[in-house]
């Protein structure tokens, strides 16, 4: 990756941007004329009802679906110039529903976030495990470390999902509906967690309801 200027530069450094973005899927226009610019350390919430295109926007911004027209800039580079691996080291996208086919411990799941940093056929290194455990600690889920992800409650699973994104150690952390299926108390807890994460990550999240957008977008 070429540019990684400091956030303190005179001109604000654009970490993630879209210009006149249009995305068509299966002949239907999902996103039209979307422009945005997100800088380092920002906390951004994308709010809209079901079917508004929040998830598609997030997928387009992470290169998982191609833009029909317009431009996406990730870390000062047009996204089409970046390899999938480079993108995965720049933006972590975490889905709200993690469904695992086999019994998997929380620390094993979170260690999967180290995949973009790995090389060769060996499993997670000691360093990777350390980083994964640090991510679990940051979300306050150390007590869940050795539990099977599939036996966790919805709220606990969201914590594991956020830890998975953090373990990817990217400048941008994108969460797709991180508070879906949660009651109000757990929603507030996740929101507080996202605000309080004492890191430099830019955090982007999508949510349906507008009721507490100001709270959690911070």
């Amino acid at each position: 990756m070429s540019a990684n200027t400091s956030p303190n530069d005179a001109t604000p450094y654009e970490l993630l941007g879209a210009k006149n973005l249009q995305v068509d899927l299966g002949g239907t226009t999902i996103l039209r004329d979307v422009s945005l610019s997100i800088g380092p350390g920002e906390r951004v919430a994308i709010v809209g009802p079901n079917g508004a295109g929040k998830t598609t926007l997030m997928r387009a911004l992470s290169g998982a679906v191609p833009a029909t027209s317009g431009e996406i800039i990730l870390c000062s580079e047009p996204i089409q110039n970046l390899s999938r691996e480079t993108i995965a080291r720049s933006i972590a996208v975490v889905s709200s529903d993690i469904a695992l086919p086999f019994a998997t411990r929380v620390d094993e799941l979170v260690a999967l976030g180290r995949i973009p940093h790995g090389r060769g056929p060996a499993g997670p290194s000691a360093h990777d495990r350390e980083r994964a455990n640090a991510a679990i600690e940051r979300v306050g889920a150390s007590h869940l470390q050795r539990r099977d992800v599939r036996t966790l409650s919805a709220g606990e699973r969201q914590l594991a999902a956020v830890a998975l994104g953090l373990a990817q150690e990217t400048p941008i952390l994108a969460l797709d509906e991180p508070t879906a299926h949660l009651d109000l108390r757990h929603r507030m807890e996740i929101a507080d967690l996202l605000i309080s994460l004492a890191g430099d990550e830019t955090i982007m999240k999508t949510k349906r309801s507008t009721s507490c957008a100001t709270d959690s977008a911070a």
Binding site: R59, R84, E85, V93, I98, A99, P101, I115, P116
Partner: peptide, 22 residues
């Protein structure tokens, strides 16, 4: 065995694996 990294990412499904750079 050398593709183990990609197959590990498949645990998270196609979308999840894509976001891990696979």
């Amino acid at each position: 065995a050398r593709r183990g990294r990609a197959l590990a990412a498949f645990l998270l499904g196609d979308e999840g694996a894509t976001h891990l750079g696979i």
